[in-house]
Computed example of a mutant assay.
Amino acid sequence: MSLGDTYLTVLGWIGSDPDFREIRQTPQTTFRLGSTPRQFDKTLNGYVDKPTTWFTVQCWRGLARNAFESIKIGQPVIVTGRLRTHEWTDDSGEQHSRVILEAFTLGHDLSRGTTTFAKNAPRAEAVPFAPTELTPAGATAAPYPPDEFSTTPLPLSAERPAAEAA
């Protein structure tokens, strides 16, 4: 995190098909995100939509690949990231700029539906492990840290086991 950067979290809907590219061998996915606030109107005795704010969202590296394979136009998502200003000069010498939301995290909004999660396989391009004198004996490197929780499936039924019921 840097001082002076603007971080925000946006709840919205995917407004365009995700566009996947590799820029200098770095994966990037870009899509549009629309966020429409709703407000209760007493005169109408109901909710009304306020103007939609549109964001261009950029995802990089692993997030870019996962986003491209996971999100579709029209799906509700939550995006957290930092605002960046992209400036350029066109062929006629005119200055342009646009604000981009550079995503750190992205996920489906589970208050609006369900989703299924699949963990990525370990990265093949893992950095080689070079032990130092501070490394404990027998330690090895892994591209990801070990799982924090067991992967034993939990029963999801409403029934209680007989031992608990007694």
Rank of each mutant, 00 (worst) to 15 (best):
T116K: 04
P27R: 11
E102I: 06
R38I: 09
P146C: 08
W60I: 14
R98L: 12
T135D: 02
S111A: 13
D109N: 10
P18A: 08
R38W: 15
L156H: 07
V57M: 03
K42L: 15
R32Y: 10
D90F: 08
G46R: 13
T85K: 13
R123F: 11
A121H: 04
T115Y: 02
W88T: 04
L156C: 07
E133R: 11
G4D: 05
I73F: 13
L44P: 01
P18G: 03
V48Y: 07
T140H: 11
P161G: 11
A118M: 06
I14D: 01
A139F: 07
R38C: 05
D17H: 05
P146W: 06
W60Q: 10
F40G: 10
P131N: 02
R21V: 13
Q58H: 14
R84W: 09
E148N: 06
S35Y: 00
F68E: 00
T43I: 13
V99G: 01
N66V: 02
L101V: 00
F149L: 09
E22W: 05
D41C: 15
L63H: 01
D90S: 08
E125K: 10
T89C: 07
H86K: 14
T43L: 15
D147C: 08
E22C: 11
Y7D: 08
K42C: 13
T52A: 05
L11S: 11
A141G: 15
A163E: 15
A139Y: 05
P122E: 03
E87W: 08
G34W: 04
P145G: 06
R98C: 09
A121E: 10
K42V: 14
T132H: 06
P27F: 03
D90I: 08
T135M: 03
K42T: 14
R21G: 06
E94K: 09
G113C: 04
T140L: 12
K119V: 08
E164I: 08
S111P: 01
P51Q: 03
